[in-house]
């Protein structure tokens, strides 16, 4: 019974703080994306000619698979279908990774990044761990 109470408490904490953090993060992402909207990003493999040598840039983020999401996902998996919470989580992580890449590129004086690739990998425990989203590409100065 105490175990159940504890789980319920974790869920409530997760929902409350998780959704607050998510709202804040989405607003933060939108602001930074607007500030970097002058950057030109492609996943094309060929580079335009420039005088300065190109620069490899990366951006990464490790996100937690939290208790609340795993709990809900467990239910959804019984019947199958979309797990929208994971969709938004991965979307946020991918945007964050790309923004970090762009911030690195901009700091180096670049206005264009080409051949951008995303890499996804699990880290840590299956139950306690998270996932890493890595974005990398070639910046043109």
């Amino acid at each position: 019974m105490t175990g159940l109470g504890f789980s319920a408490l974790l869920l409530i904490i997760g929902v409350f703080f998780g959704s607050r953090a998510q709202k804040k993060h989405v607003a933060n992402l939108a602001a930074r994306e607007a500030a970097l909207s002058h950057m030109f990003v492609t996943n094309l493999r060929t580079l335009p000619a420039t005088e300065k040598p190109p620069l490899l840039v990366t951006g990464s983020v490790v996100i937690a698979f939290d208790y609340f999401r795993r709990f809900i996902a467990g239910f959804v998996m019984l019947v199958g279908g979309r797990i929208t919470m994971y969709e938004t989580m991965l979307d946020r992580a991918r945007r964050e990774a790309l923004l970090r890449l762009l911030e690195q590129a901009e700091a180096a004086g670049a206005r264009e990044v080409h051949n951008v690739r995303y890499e996804f990998s699990r880290v840590g425990h299956t139950t306690k761990g998270g996932a890493e989203l890595l974005a990398y590409g070639t910046a043109i100065i």
Binding site: I13, G14, F17, V62, A64, D66, F68, G130
Partner: peptide, 26 residues
């Protein structure tokens, strides 16, 4: 780092310790 990650697993969000670890490693 793992302890902090355990806490983060309750509310979700970024695992900053892991991000730094993997950045260093990369």
């Amino acid at each position: 780092r793992d302890f902090m990650a355990g806490l983060k697993n309750i509310v979700g969000g970024e695992l900053k310790g892991y991000t730094e670890l993997l950045e260093d490693a990369r």
